[in-house]
Each structure stands twice: as C-alpha cells, then as structure tokens.
Design a protein around this nucleic acid. Structure first.
Lengths: 243, 243
DNA sequence: CGGTCCATTGAGCACCATCAAGACTTGTGG
DNA sequence: CCACAAGTCTTGATGGTGCTCAATGGACCG
C-alpha cells in the first residue's frame, strides 16, 4: 500500500492536519506511509526508538505500558483522527508505550523529521497538536485516576456503557452488547484479571443488572448500571467507597 | 508586588519563555502578574474558569484533583521554570486540578488571552509549551501508574529518596532527611492515609532501613531503600508484588 | 470423541483503609 | 518553669476489595 491522498483522508477533518495548507500538506503526502493493521497487530513497541508519529485514519489503537513487574496497563485508546507517538517523538525519541490495533485499522506513519519540520514551520499545526495532546493528557489522567480510585465494578460498568451499540444508546432495554474481545482482553481494558472480571460480572448478574452469556451481554437495568458507573448520583445506603 | 522584569527572572532560562525574543517578551512583561505565595496557599481551584496560566519562578506547586467522593489526589508537583494551568486554558477554560504552593513561592500569572496570543504568533514558543506538556504528561502518567500498581512501601521509599538533602545525594550513610511537612501532607504526597504511612514507616524501621524520629528520618541502609523503591533489581525471595 | 483453549467458580490471602484509643509534641497561660 | 489543653502522631484490631491459585465446566476443532 503505497500512496494515498491525505487530502481525501476521511480522518483529516477531525485531526491535527485539518489546518494544513496546500504546500505542507503536499510534503506530508510525500512523507507519510499508510499501512493496514489487523486487530492485535502492533504499531510500535515501548522502549523502541520513536522514528515516526502515527495518525489513525480508521479503526482504534490501544496504548499500553509495561510495568517493571511485566504487567501490561492500558493508558489510552485512540480513535480516528488522533495521533500516536508524538510525545515520544517530541521528548527524546523513545516510545513510552506500546501501540496495538484493536480493530481493523488504517494508520499512516509520519517520519519523525517530517513531523518536526511541520511543527517548527507551521504555528497552526503546532497549536493543533498542542490541543490534541492536552485532550489526550486529560483522558489518560482520568483513566488512571479511575483505576486508582474506583472499584472494579465501577470501571466495568463504565466499560459496558461505553460499548453499547451506537444506534441503541438512547433506545430501550434490553440492550445487547456484543464484545468481539476475549475475556483476557476485556480484563486488560478494565484493568483487572480475568478471574476478577468473571466474579464481577457474576455479581452484577445476580443483582439483575446484566445477563452475560459468553461474549454477548444483555443489559437489563441500564439505570442501575449508570449508577454503578457513577454517572448518576448513588442511591443512599450502598454509596461511598469503603475500601 | 507589581512589576518585575521577565528578562531578569531566574526561572526564565529553564522555562518555556526562554526562546522569546524582545518584542513578545515585552508584551509578556506587560501582561504578567507576579505574586508571592506562602506554603499552603492556593493558586487556583479545580472547576474554576481558567483565566490564567501560572509560571513558577521560585518554589514548588502541588497539583491535585478531587475525586467524586471528595478525596484529594496529587497528580503532579511542579518546579521553577514550569507552567501550570496551560492545559485548562487550552482546552475549555476550566481548571481540572487545584494548585497549592507547598513552599514559599513566587509565581507569575499570565492572562489567558496573552498566553494564547503568544502561542499563535510564536512557533518556537508553541513548541516549547509542547515539549513541556509532553514532559508533564509523562510525569503524571508515571505518578498515576505508580499509585495504581505499586505498594505503599515502594512509593514511600521513592518519596524518601527524592527528598534526600541535595548535597548529600552521593554521600554516605547515615543520611538525614528533614521533612518540613506534616504527616498528613506527606501521606497525601505518597497517596495514602496518615495511619498507613505510620505503619509503613514502622515496617521499614523494623527492617533497619530507616530510623524515623518525628520529622527527622535517618536513612540507615540506602541500598535497601533503593531496592524497595524498585530503582534497583529486587533480591530474590522477597520480590514480586503479591497483592 | 478426546484435546486444547477459554471462561467460570471457590478458597485463601495480601494489602491497605478505617476506626478508635493511647502516646507524644506543641503552644499557652499562670 | 510547670500545668494543661489541643493538635498531631502512632499503634493495634478489624474488615473489605481484589489478586493468586487451582480445579471445574464449556466451546470449538481436529
């Protein structure tokens, strides 16, 4: 897969390159390297030299960091229009996280030098990247805060709500979530272990909130789920975080 | 305290404004508002409108976020030359964290409009802010990861090592750490409770690693402390993270 | 119809927060 | 300088959450 037009890229309007005028856009088109990734394929490895910034045209990319003890921790999931790896490219040339495609994705690699040139010469572009980094930083902060302070139940509930089928977000129960992921992977995204995930699903099932059956999960009581996710004020009694 | 020269600011060389040429620097000098803060004084509140970016000239500033359950969580400690509040100013005008001085500090407030103008018109400046945000984002990420995954012992050990007296960092034992903070505040910085902090200090004392006496803590075995902080490979046997 | 992978379930345990009471420090007034 | 009070720190007991480990139960595939 060689040349693709950046000016016809579906994600450009949403991303940091939207402000680029014809000339720098031309240089970007010359420099970028588009690529298709299957789910599970790795874009880059934590610790490697940051030779490129990745721009997601289509699909989703999971960013995770390896702890010293070898455990993987998801720090962000990026969507089309967003970029990946710019922090490492900016800082010192080593990726701080690994990036893995979790959906069939089209991603363009932009060589470090080209990216830095664009930054230096194009103030609007620099500002756009700034905005995106601000958003990403906030997102990651929220996610890590949630992990540190919220219970598995809460994180799971939020995960489920985020994975409701798009058109049915406002529809009525029972909603059905079809997860294309293995439990292992879901556990990672919720930041827990498969065993604990199973246990927590069981608890929610017993409460009549959901009805899990393999990779298909029916949401029976969306209101409760939202309360558990702390998106609604908690009912008194079962409130607060004991541990 | 009214006008101070930015061009004589001790922190400028270290900070994002180092690249500013005479003209924008002049405008910055006209717009900024310097202020002195005693330890414990608040620079800004989470949730408030982000009317300014703060530039630390002297001292240290603690950034913390309030969880929905009302608990405070430290996300960063910023040093001279660094800026605070730029993310909120960039994004949508609301501070996402509260900022409190934890040392006698001199901090300049730069109004939102002035900051944004500088960003737009000065590509070097935008790049400098970009770099700083990249660093800060990484720092916060590390801190939050540590909280989520490391034991209190580990975080405490790291905290102690970071608070070794500067000139003695390479010197021999016994090193003495003089903390000017109350236990309550130390507990917050290590992200735990005063009670648990006491417990953990006791455990380390029993192992002969440290000898705490009030706000003075003697480090008896620095090597062990570094191992506990995971800055050295763990000895076999007492390794791994059980919980 | 066994084999392999994945998911579930239960028992046990480590870590840490909470609570409450006691020891200590700090500050104040006699 | 001492007595007393208020705040701070420590210490112990208790319990909750979630991880580990291990065994069972299904699903998919050869």
């Amino acid at each position: 897969m060689a040349a693709m037009s950046c000016d016809r890229c579906a994600a450009r309007a949403r991303g940091v390159f939207c402000a680029l005028s014809a000339r720098p856009l031309g240089r970007l088109m010359a420099a970028h390297v588009p690529h298709r990734y299957a789910p599970g394929q790795q874009l880059c490895f934590q610790g490697n030299a940051a030779f490129a910034v990745f721009c997601i045209q289509e699909g989703r990319v999971k960013l995770s960091r390896l702890a010293p003890d070898g455990e993987e921790h998801v720090i962000s999931v990026r969507n089309p229009g967003e970029i990946v790896g710019h922090r490492a490219v900016l800082l010192d040339g080593f990726y701080r996280a690994s990036a893995v495609s979790i959906e069939p994705s089209t991603v363009c690699a932009i060589p470090r030098a080209a990216f830095m040139d664009l930054l230096r010469e194009n103030s609007d572009f620099a500002n756009a990247v700034l905005m995106q980094m601000a958003r990403a930083s906030l997102d990651t902060e929220d996610r890590l805060m949630a992990r540190a302070m919220e219970r598995v139940q809460t994180r799971l509930a939020r995960f489920l709500l985020e994975h409701l089928p798009e058109p049915a977000r406002a529809a009525q129960e029972p909603l059905v979530i079809r997860l294309e992921l293995k439990r292992q992977e879901v556990a990672r995204l919720v930041d827990t272990t498969p065993a604990t995930l199973s246990h927590t699903l069981h608890v929610l099932a017993q409460r009549g909130v959901i009805a899990p059956r393999g990779r298909e999960i029916r949401v029976l009581d969306r209101t409760s789920l939202e309360r558990i996710a702390r998106l609604r004020p908690a009912a008194e009694g079962s409130a607060g975080r004991p541990g």
